[in-house]
Amino acid sequence: MEVRTIKVFTTVDNINLHTQVVDMSMTYGQQFGPTYLDGADVTKIKPHNSHEGKTFYVLPNDDTLRVEAFEYYHTTDPSFLGRYMSALNHTKKWKYPQVNGLTSIKWADNNCYLATALLTLQQIELKFNPPALQDAYYRARAGEAANFCALILAYCNKTVGELGDVRETMSYLFQHANLDSCKRVLNVVCKTCGQQQTTLKGVEAVMYMGTLSYEQFKKGVQIPCTCGKQATKYLVQQESPFVMMSAPPAQYELKHGTFTCASEYTGNYQCGHYKHITSKETLYCIDGALLTKSSEYKGPITDVFYKENSYTTTIK
């Protein structure tokens, strides 16, 4: 009895394709271990004539594949690729409408935090270190965002349907971005203890939790000093293409032309909904596939993004 075979390709990165001759009487799992086709788990399936010449994702289970996976995804987590594939199996079914010149995501599976993050990423200057993220990001900007969303979920250790947080998501993504040249110098002034300067680099240099107003941050924000008295913390120097200011959701007025974009969060910790506000020729609110415009805006804002380049204080 002759062994019926077909020729397929296996890959971990969709760049390096490895030619395989597979036995049609055995499952993919018996031949390769966990195997995925377009995100779908085909591990328990036997090869079919229609699979001839198709590319299958496999887990990096030998040295060659491990090197290829690390170079593309910059992670050695053995569960990463499987999590990416199972997320992709959902995100490829989502709709990605162009809204006001940006790629958004039609609401499904509690994905409003991903839509808000995706919209924000198209408006701030950011370059990702893992080629996987950078490639998928370019495709997302062009309207094909399924891979990018699935990668975000995998890097953030999230599953489809789980509630997510924009600030946490951005923080994970910033860790995989090139923020080497970003720098922030802060000064804390206390009447009792004097003053202390701190220099922050990388992710810490672009994120701040405690106030939404970048102007206020430049002037000074009140913080408790270690001595128990009130101290003032203010920005001395900022070198970065953008800054992200966050605070627990509270009524906040966004003035046209003073910011790049913002995240609105309605609801409580267990259950809520994100919308995205962007400042173009007027203010726009993007909620999944829905767009509304207004000249002014007041609502429960939790993150505001500002364009920056270089700032030095005039406070002496």
Rank of each mutant, 00 (worst) to 15 (best):
E2H: 08
E2R: 11
V12C: 07
N14T: 08
H18V: 08
V21C: 14
Y28N: 03
G29W: 09
G29P: 04
G29E: 10
Y36Q: 05
A40T: 14
D41R: 07
D41T: 12
P47V: 08
H48G: 14
N49Q: 13
G53P: 05
K54L: 13
P60M: 06
N61I: 15
D63E: 14
T64V: 14
F70I: 09
Y73W: 04
T75F: 04
T76G: 14
F80P: 02
F80H: 03
G82C: 14
R83M: 09
R83V: 05
M85Q: 09
L88G: 01
H90D: 09
T91P: 03
Q98V: 14
G101E: 04
G101W: 05
T103W: 09
A108E: 10
C112H: 03
Y113I: 02
L114Q: 04
L114C: 02
L119G: 04
Q123N: 08
I124C: 05
N129D: 08
P130Q: 03
P130I: 06
Q134A: 12
A136R: 03
A136L: 04
Y137N: 04
Y137L: 12
R139H: 11
A145W: 08
F148N: 02
A154L: 02
K158V: 02
L163M: 14
C182P: 00
R184C: 05
N187S: 13
V188G: 03
C190A: 00
T198M: 15
T199D: 05
T199K: 08
L200A: 11
L200G: 01
G202T: 00
V203I: 08
V206R: 02
V206M: 03
T211C: 11
K218S: 05
Q222K: 11
P224K: 13
C225E: 05
K229I: 08
T232V: 14
Y234L: 07
Y234A: 06
Y234V: 09
Y234H: 07
L235E: 01
L235T: 03
P241A: 14
F242H: 01
V243I: 10
V243T: 01
A247L: 06
P248N: 10
A250C: 15
Q251W: 13
L254G: 01
K255F: 09
H256Q: 09
H256C: 15
T258L: 07
T260Q: 07
E264T: 07
Q270P: 06
G272A: 01
Y274N: 03
Y274A: 04
T278I: 13
T282F: 09
L283T: 07
L283Y: 02
L283E: 00
C285I: 15
I286V: 10
I286M: 06
L291A: 13
S294L: 15
S294G: 11
S295C: 07
E296Y: 14
K298R: 10
I301H: 00
T302L: 00
F305L: 07
F305N: 00
S310V: 15
T313E: 12
T314V: 10
